[in-house]
Design a protein around this nucleic acid. Sequence first.
DNA 1: TTGACGTATGCCGATATCGGCATATGATTG
DNA 2: CAATCATATGCCGATATCGGCATACGTCAA
Lengths: 115, 115
Amino acid sequence: MARAATTSDVFNAIAEPQRRRILVLLRAGERPVTEVAQELGLPQPGASKHLRVLREVGLVRDRRAGKQRLYGLDARGLRPVHEWTGGFEQFWNESFDRLDAYVRELEQARQEEQP
Amino acid sequence: MARAATTSDVFNAIAEPQRRRILVLLRAGERPVTEVAQELGLPQPGASKHLRVLREVGLVRDRRAGKQRLYGLDARGLRPVHEWTGGFEQFWNESFDRLDAYVRELEQARQEEQP
DNA sequence: TTGACGTATGCCGATATCGGCATATGATTG
DNA sequence: CAATCATATGCCGATATCGGCATACGTCAA
């Protein structure tokens, strides 16, 4: 192993809790950094930085509105994530069965230990 | 800001490309570390470490099988991610509209600049 | 222009991360 | 028990990350 991917990809962008909160907040509509920071209880520079990351991966767009800069959601980038996880949907339920099978195997193995 | 969440949560676990590859591979069935490493072209220690992370967040289970230790998928943990992203589904399409609106705004603003 | 507001950036410290390598630990078989 | 195969760990280096703080930059209004 020798260092690999980091930020600048959607999976990483949403790995950060604060950024997830920001995205959720922006579902309610565009907002200037200040408001984001305030509503989430974040320092302004922090909010700014997170928004930068989100912008770089394309999850957020910004537009000037006079003195302010409004940030708005662009959720299209989340679709791949949704689809990727969706690829495991059939396993969510199956997992239980597998777990059962596994447990049953254990039981059996234990019984065979002391015949 | 002062340090926050890291690994040990599903979002972070799947932020790593290699780990995503491992999960996909395990959809095809249980495998010992060696096979995972081999099929993905990873060094064994590397594979072991990634599997450890995946195990810690519960995306993977392991069971002994004689000399080997078989790793199997437990996709249940991916469900929250799927659902979280699903919460933005309605915005995937809407985003286009917003983009259009945004572009239109720009046009208008530009025209107002040179009347 | 000067000021005032809104926002981004730079630098720092603390801490994780991932990969590579060597090696320890575990289990099985002879 | 020794040898062997399977797997996990430890340690390292390079690099990111996130947060905090101060401060630069940008834009508008008087």
